[in-house]
Design a protein around this nucleic acid. Structure first.
Lengths: 242, 242
DNA sequence: CGCTACGTTGACGTCCCTCAATTTCGGTGG
DNA sequence: CCACCGAAATTGAGGGACGTCAACGTAGCG
């Protein structure tokens, strides 16, 4: 079904040392945890897990990009998070025995390490710092979603899209001679699901921005040419009231 | 400035024993933690803390009701959570050294116990179960906000309002001979801020429901008369697409 | 080279926000 | 106990942002 063999690679331990979850742990301890890791490699489009699957693994992305999406009963989706290397996903499995609340799809070829909750729990008992770190990570997520919720409730589409693009550029941007390329194949539909709108609105707004010289767009591609212009759209006051 | 005297009351320890944060701890240990608690009493309208204040206390509500709201830069607000007795608030202070992301306002006379992060951290070192419990709580919050985010992005106002009312009825409802009263003074504005709409839309929808016999409304009052009708509105498929 | 998924563009409709005018309700003080 | 005041709530009219739908391009890939 999947590789369950331990994976001890320089790449993994390097990622782990830089990951907030393992911050402050003695390096040799991180090595021991790394030695207990399993690994799984996927190609573009495959899923690490689906929403509703029993949450029985905690993953750390080593290579590639992921999309975490959540679907409503009627099929409507929202793109909750884009995962980059060095980031945990499926971390809720650490705390709860329930099901994954999102689906995790590889956007390209990707490699992830994973542990079973019981395995990590053993380490948590020995190193409370691990638990504290995990709490920090979750607390960050709570805040992020509160913030996005507020923005979705109070801001209009163009501003939300500007924020999303800027966030993506900061998180996964790569400098090119044209500007900052968002290094991740995102369809208009994906951007719509990130911002709570439709692919049509995204398309219109992106093209409008392009004609203003703020961005360059292409098939599954956005390049930020003039970030300050987007910042103005994202920050300049007028919301929908006042 | 405030009472810093220890508070050891039967009411508090009872609350604590039932609180998820302390689940699974030896009762005498809970007593020790209770003995380290401070307390603060507020009257309606006062704040335990404001958004942006340094997060230096973790609170447990013992009596009364609270509203946790978050404001955007332009003053727009969202009502993130209603807190009932036995529930933690300001728990992000446990994990992070930052500022409170929300304001906590007493909806009526209320009493809360609190600890300083450092105090609780001592207990966390001794009882990793505390950390695990805290993670569970935060994980629940993450899920709840992901869910609300998805709903805000995909569902229309009437349905979101129906969900909110049902949630409130379950959380803070009190049986009367007319139906289930939401035992908390909520203005139309509050309901609007919970559901990402305007007080006008809330008013219209509530009155429409009243004329259908689903609810009875009054000044800062909602009584659910026919829950199933609301459930139908909340669950019946048609979203905005399909 | 043709299929398929992605993207664009226009027209149209509608949900719901905005704003203003009134009314109702609850509390307060005379 | 009643008059008064402010906050909450109602109601209507109007408009605009954005969703919906359909038709048509276009790029990538086998």
């Amino acid at each position: 079904m999947h590789m369950a063999s331990p994976l001890i690679s320089p790449a993994l331990t390097e990622q782990m040392l830089a990951t907030p979850l393992f911050a402050g742990l003695p390096p040799d301890e991180v090595l021991r945890i790394a030695a207990a890791a399993h690994s799984k490699r996927l190609t573009a489009g495959e899923y690490y897990f689906l929403q509703g699957d029993p949450a029985e693994r905690i993953y750390l992305l080593v290579e590639g990009r992921l999309k975490l999406t959540r679907a409503a009963a009627d099929g409507q989706q929202a793109l909750m998070r884009v995962v980059t290397p060095g980031t945990l996903f499926g971390a809720l499995a650490l705390a709860q025995a329930g099901d994954y609340p999102v689906s995790a799809q590889a956007a390209d070829g990707s490699l992830a390490a994973y542990w079973l909750p019981l395995e990590l729990m053993g380490f948590v008992q020995q190193f409370p710092a691990l638990a504290i770190n995990a709490m920090k990570i979750m607390a960050d997520h709570v805040q992020e979603f509160q913030e996005r919720y507020l923005q979705l409730a109070t801001e209009r589409v163009e501003r939300r899209l500007a924020r999303a693009i800027l966030r993506l550029a900061a998180q996964t941007g790569r400098k090119t001679d044209e500007g900052v390329l968002i290094d991740l194949p995102l369809t208009r539909q994906d951007l719509a699901e990130m911002t709570g709108t439709t692919l049509f609105s995204v398309s219109r707004i992106l093209n409008q921005w392009e004609s203003q010289g703020l961005v360059k767009v292409g098939r599954e591609k956005v390049v930020v040419v003039f970030p300050h212009g987007l910042v103005r759209i994202a920050e300049d006051l007028p919301g929908k009231k006042e």
